[in-house]
Computed example of a mutant assay.
Amino acid sequence: MTFSIAARCAETGQLGIAISSSSIAVGARCPWLRAGVGAVSSQNITLPALGPQILARLEQASPPVQAIKEVLFSQGYSEYRQVLAIDAGGNTAFFSGEKTLGTHRGVAGKDCVAGGNMLRTPKVVDAMVKAFEDASGLLAERLLVALQAGLAEGGEAGPVHSAALKVVGDLVWPVVDLRVDWADNDPIGELQRLWRSYEPQMDDYILRAIDPSLAPGYGVPGDER
């Protein structure tokens, strides 16, 4: 019911996930990130707890493969789970249980790992990795390019209805956290439009948080700067 890509930017150290699903509000359950540590997507028959628990092990310097294995073993029902992870060093891992739904696949690339289930074709995941590796610019841009490439290759077997983009950098909170919880048509396109609106303001929102005295105003009532 989901396809996603987790990646890092080797230049900035940012980590991010782009994800889309036929299910509602995929961004509320599946992507989990921790600045300077890693990014994890817990999907298929989703157990949200897997994300924070795997990140905790990555923070303790466990390799992604070991972190996923330890957490899945402790939780049980691993045959229903699909998990992909990348750490701050660019090391990746992917797991897909034997009861993962429909056509499923996982592929690791340079500084990225992509995976999905209920896919129209296994080539969806390969297309995402190639698109990410070939793209340039901000990590968020590259993740969205990869997500669109997966959709163009066929995406899910049925229509997708939600999508999310999440990126962490040097701060403890995400610098990008955009979600389309439900759209009858083209949630990925809607996510891209959200990014186009947010990107020019992203640095200003960071500045507003760190040093409000330097933050620009936005012309809203009561803001006279």
Rank of each mutant, 00 (worst) to 15 (best):
G150D: 01
A135W: 05
R120K: 10
Q43K: 08
K110H: 14
E11T: 10
L101W: 11
C30I: 11
S96E: 11
A183N: 06
I24M: 10
L15V: 12
P221N: 01
V180W: 03
L191N: 13
E199L: 12
S22F: 08
Q75V: 11
H104K: 13
Q75H: 14
P212E: 09
I5T: 13
A35F: 07
R193W: 08
L33E: 01
S62W: 15
R193N: 11
V167Q: 00
P31T: 07
L139N: 00
P52Y: 12
W195C: 03
R57M: 07
P159S: 14
S20M: 07
S41Y: 00
M1S: 15
R142C: 02
K123P: 00
L194W: 13
V37D: 06
P52A: 04
L194N: 13
E79F: 04
I54L: 03
H161P: 01
S136H: 09
G116M: 03
A135D: 15
A146H: 05
R57F: 06
P221F: 13
V220E: 14
S96G: 15
Q14M: 10
P212W: 14
L178M: 11
R196F: 08
G222N: 06
I19Y: 05
Q43L: 01
Y80M: 08
L147V: 09
E70M: 11
